[in-house]
Design a protein around this nucleic acid. Structure first.
Lengths: 217, 217
DNA sequence: GATATATGATAGCTTTACTATCATAAATAA
DNA sequence: TTATTTATGATAGTAAAGCTATCATATATC
């Protein structure tokens, strides 16, 4: 994890892990705009100043959470694609992983991946849709996201070596899987899944979009 | 324009038009997070309380600006597609309009559409990625966006009457045209256009994505 | 036993977000 | 024309958000 994202490593202490754990619950509950370090401190039973010893501000905390998520997801993808040879099967599985509600991973007691996944859907893009995106990017804050994109882009190229837009298609798959999920649940008329509210429909849509594009080229 | 978005109609007075005009400049300059009614008041030469007579808070103002933009864009699309028959040509032109930097429309002196377009790219999704999206949606705040989506969805169906995901593809085209633009300029490794930084590449990518999908079905 | 380190407790400061009141100028209605 | 509504300006004030600083204490480490 990028050291510039925190002042003190939250994984290295009980208080730190509590900050991560409860920030996920609280951001999920209140949304990022209404989330404050004061409320978080009250929930944990510590003080505002205590939180500030770990994170400079709530933006850095959000970037930390998104970076953690993308790192974890890349690991999941590598793990689940471990023994697969066919790049098309791999890509299909990636789409499924991206578009499916995550189950809580008991390995990491202080992170509820299921809630974190929901946060990424609603708040994830706010980590980079800012005026400081340039500086944040220079400090490599978005490296886990870029790495995941590169992994997916390379599998796209394996599927179709002549396809001209592997990176853009990779970032599109990631973003659209989340956006269609958000629309399906909150602005259903922007999707074709408003009636069913079924994640499998999003998977079908993405598979159709991706594999017709790759078949052609 | 939805009356519930404002307390007093900004189009009906000089001060109101100044609020729109300068809020676009200021949000463009500082980003939405750092934008405050106090700074806006100073820029206009009025008082904070003066702004609050028009807009309840900055979230409502952002939603107003996005609604204005989508309404304006739908008009542009209808106008530019006016005499066209072939739905494929129409869809192609829509993609071009969505992905191309807007020129300032001299008809509307108090709105700089070019700056507004940039704001929509960076801040547009923050209008709906909130906890209050349900209530805002009930009040029809996102109707212009949905209407535009429906227009595009119908043209998609004209192109390919059996295609199963016209609405999702429509919202995907809109969102991806903006997102790829943002990535191209700020996180270029997430795209295949980092070197050229050319909007025409985004248009090519979207055309490829859309028309291979529609050709197949 | 001395010392470094993490946390808790408290205080305080600036800015943001908003509300209220009163005076005045301009538009409109009687 | 005068009366009155209406929009704006000027000023004040409050609660919460977003920090920073200081000191005491408990705990680990040397």
């Amino acid at each position: 994890m990028n050291e510039a994202l925190f002042l003190r490593n939250p994984e290295g202490s009980e208080l730190g892990k509590n900050i991560i754990k409860h920030s996920i619950r609280l951001i999920y509950k209140t949304g990022f705009e209404a989330f404050t370090f004061k409320k978080l401190a009250e929930e944990i039973g510590t003080t505002e100043a205590g939180i500030y010893r770990y994170f400079e501000n709530k933006h850095k905390l959000l970037v930390y959470l998104t970076a953690w998520y993308w790192g974890w997801l890349e690991f999941q993808i590598r793990f689940q694609n471990n023994n697969l040879k066919d790049p098309k099967v791999k890509l299909k599985r990636i789409i499924k992983i991206l578009a499916t509600t995550v189950e809580d991973d008991k390995e990491t007691s202080f992170v509820n991946e299921s809630l974190l996944h929901q946060i990424i859907i609603t708040e994830g893009s706010k980590a980079y849709l800012t005026k400081q995106v340039g500086e944040d990017n220079q400090q490599q804050f978005f490296k886990p996201y870029k790495d995941l994109c590169a992994v997916i882009g390379n599998i796209i190229l394996e599927c179709s070596p002549t396809y001209k837009y592997p990176k853009s298609l990779a970032s599109t798959i990631i973003e659209i899987s989340h956006l269609q999920n958000f629309f399906m649940n909150h602005l259903p008329s922007l999707t074709d899944f408003g009636k069913t509210k079924d994640e499998n429909d999003i998977i079908s849509f993405l598979n159709d979009l991706v594999f017709t594009s790759l078949k052609k080229s």
